[in-house]
Computed example of a mutant assay.
Amino acid sequence: MSPAPSSEAPASAAPASDLRPIAVIVDREGLGDSLLKLPFLRAITRAFPGRPVWWISSHQTSMAHELAPFVRPLLAHVIENAALTRPPIDVIGRLRALPPFEMVFDSRTRGLTVLLARLFLEHRGFYCCLPGYLFSSRRPPGRFGRPRGIAARMLSLAEAAIGGPADWEGRLDISDAARGLAAARLPEGPSYVGLAPGSREARKNWPVDRWVALAGALFARGHVPVFLIGPQEQALIERIRAEAPGALMPEVEPVDPALGLVRLELAIAVGERLAAVVANDNGIGHLMATIGTPLVSLFGPTDVGRWAPFTRRGEIVRAQDFGGETMEDIPVDAALAGLDRLLGRTATTAG
């Protein structure tokens, strides 16, 4: 894997080449937020080859952390905690300290902060996500209203700058060591279905007993359930072992440090071996969508129109379709039916 891009580049640092760089301004980004912008990042680096891309976050961004090893070929600089939100007089000074840019893409949606960037960054083209593409140098061809979804909205900015369709598809490169370890833990033969029971917010989590029941239903249908357990789900391990014996948890077992795996690399390698995944509205779900693994997404209180994973092979199961707003309102049968539809569609496509 390549080294991570710098997250501490000074705001006044000069670009590595004589070409004016491209700036992408974002607010706070967790893993899911950054993954939803990855198609856009691929699109602009392909459309404008050779131009350095600066990813500038007002707060923190996963582009400087979990995703850093995977986006290193695409980003020249990642700047965190740039403090480009408030107070306005300080923001103006910070904006003026940045170098001239060829283009600026501003993903934020607060009118004043976007206007300040438009006025006080030197650029030759400015593209932003405000309603009606207000303050943008031009709109995407044939589009007047912005899309609701984060990924589609960002891609529309790329299309505005390009003047046509964006080339956004791709993969995350991982090591042979990661794929070898995943193959050892999920050997060829069984049909594996991933279950991602966590998220950063308890309100977005389907109850644990539903995950256990879903695992049982998968066993009955000839699949092997594979729980995708990250640092925040460690408390679930013993319960899963007790109530879903036979379910696999390949990320729980120790990993030899000599393999040199970076964070998320084993999760990606495991995801490549899964027939499908069922996930809450969480970062792992977005990661599975990014690598092309068929995905069933469970949504309760969060806005599916805005936060749905960006994938060609997905199913959405919403609590609202069952008369409620919470994750508890989603029955096991609904998740299983979504999985059946997705696996059936995938099998038809493969055939």
Rank of each mutant, 00 (worst) to 15 (best):
P190V: 04
S191M: 09
Y192A: 07
V193C: 08
V193L: 07
G194R: 03
G194Q: 01
A196K: 00
A196Y: 06
P197I: 09
S199C: 05
S199K: 05
R200H: 06
R200Y: 04
E201M: 11
E201C: 11
A202K: 11
A202E: 14
N205S: 09
W206Y: 10
V208D: 10
D209P: 06
D209M: 07
D209E: 10
D209Y: 06
R210D: 12
R210C: 08
W211M: 00
W211P: 00
V212G: 10
A213M: 02
A213Y: 14
A213N: 02
A213Q: 03
G216N: 04
A217E: 08
L218P: 01
L218E: 02
F219P: 04
F219G: 05
F219E: 03
F219V: 05
A220G: 11
R221N: 01
R221P: 01
G222M: 03
H223S: 01
V224G: 12
P225F: 04
V226F: 00
F227Y: 02
F227V: 00
L228G: 12
L228E: 14
G230Y: 13
G230P: 03
P231F: 12
Q232S: 14
E233R: 07
E233K: 07
E233G: 07
Q234S: 13
E238I: 10
R239W: 04
A242Y: 08
P245H: 03
G246Y: 06
G246E: 15
G246Q: 08
A247T: 00
L248F: 15
L248C: 15
M249W: 01
E251I: 10
V252P: 01
E253C: 06
V255L: 10
V255W: 12
V255E: 12
D256H: 02
P257T: 12
P257D: 04
A258L: 12
G260I: 00
G260D: 05
G260A: 05
L261S: 14
V262Q: 09
R263D: 09
L264H: 00
L266R: 09
L266K: 07
L266D: 14
A267D: 04
I268C: 05
A269R: 15
A269L: 10
V270T: 13
V270G: 03
E272V: 14
E272P: 04
R273P: 04
L274S: 03
A275Q: 11
A275C: 14
A276L: 11
A276R: 11
V277H: 02
V278G: 03
A279L: 04
N280V: 12
N280W: 00
N280F: 01
D281Q: 01
I284M: 12
I284T: 07
A289D: 05
I291S: 13
I291G: 08
G292V: 01
T293Q: 08
T293V: 14
P294T: 03
P294M: 13
P294S: 09
V296M: 07
S297L: 01
S297K: 04
L298K: 11
F299R: 07
F299D: 05
G300Y: 06
P301F: 02
D303C: 15
D303A: 08
V304K: 11
